[in-house]
Design a protein around this nucleic acid. Structure first.
Lengths: 170, 170
DNA sequence: GTTTTTAAGTCAGCCTTGTTGACATTCCAA
DNA sequence: TTGGAATGTCAACAAGGCTGACTTAAAAAC
């Protein structure tokens, strides 16, 4: 692996030696990048009565329409009481619809209403725009590496969740 | 640009087309990976009277000993009142020392005490261990790409912050 | 057919960590 | 010297995590 013109790539194979200094830079990169990652949806949601928790719920309901409350709980990694507070407001405001399960009537299946889909679009458009810009600036090889490292960084359970989401429509 | 079973590597230029689907996967990868990223320090801190905010303060004080409250504010991106609550407990518990500025007595310069350095070690050891494992699993090229994309994802101000931290000892 | 388990929802209360507003101190410049 | 700007502190509040206890309804197990 030889020197490239890319920013941040002078290290070559010395990356395998992984000094504490290099690892710390990766840690700080995650910290600052995650702030950027959430900044646009946060901006849209502030001023509405919603927050990041609502965004996450809307994202994954849109991702898997008809998912149950329990599924969502596992995906988001929060307690049902915490999720319930968020879902209650989204349902009351007509952004999410909760249908009693046909097969198992204990379950509630969650769907975005057209209004909910509208907000989802606004939020994900903003987030995708930033992602697209970053991907374009970094180039395809960097994007592949980005995804590879992120996957390796997840807990095994999260990685399973993440990969099972991929199967659906990849 | 053929389909590969292996996500992440060797995808070539097909990534430049950047479908919404691909972008969404990047978004979800960030979400799940960040959970993993913070999991280990969170686990250590729960049970103590501290949280993630304390970790962040300790990290950046260790990174830049003698930094002022205002510097830290800008780095962390929170209000001074929010930071102050965290600093107050850290100072009261003897993990952080606050020295009145010599030149400008309005400023407080922050340092970790030996005890504070001890906790910093415990926290960053855990976080670096995960990072190291992910880097090793992904390989050096992936790591370079990972850093490149993260940098591109930051807001310009955050990137400036991030890069100025790099200069110090890189 | 009764009992137990499971899915979901609710209420109450707590903690962390963000926010604004009000205020004290210090410095500097008009 | 006085008024404004910068720095830091105190108080109060809100969002969104958490646990625990409880109810309802349906499914599963016995």
């Amino acid at each position: 692996m030889e020197e490239r013109g890319h920013p941040g790539l002078h290290s070559g194979e010395s990356l395998l030696f992984l000094t504490d200094e290099q690892l710390r830079k990766g840690i700080e990169a995650m910290f600052f990048a995650y702030r950027g990652f959430t900044a646009d949806p946060d901006r849209i949601l502030s001023g509405m009565e919603y927050g990041r928790a609502h965004h996450r719920a809307i994202h994954f309901i849109n991702r898997s329409p008809g998912t149950t409350v329990n599924n969502l709980l596992n995906t988001l990694g929060v307690t049902k009481q915490s999720l319930n507070r968020v879902l209650r407001t989204l349902i009351a405001d007509g952004l999410v619809e909760s249908r009693v399960g046909e097969k198992d009537k204990r379950e509630r299946h969650l769907y975005l209403t057209p209004e909910g889909e509208g907000l989802e679009q606004r939020l994900s458009d903003a987030q995708r725009a930033r992602m697209r810009a970053a991907y374009r600036a970094a180039g395809p090889e960097a994007v592949a590496g980005f995804r590879t490292v992120l996957e390796a960084m997840m807990d095994p359970d999260m990685r399973r969740q993440y990969l099972s989401l991929r199967e659906e429509n990849s």
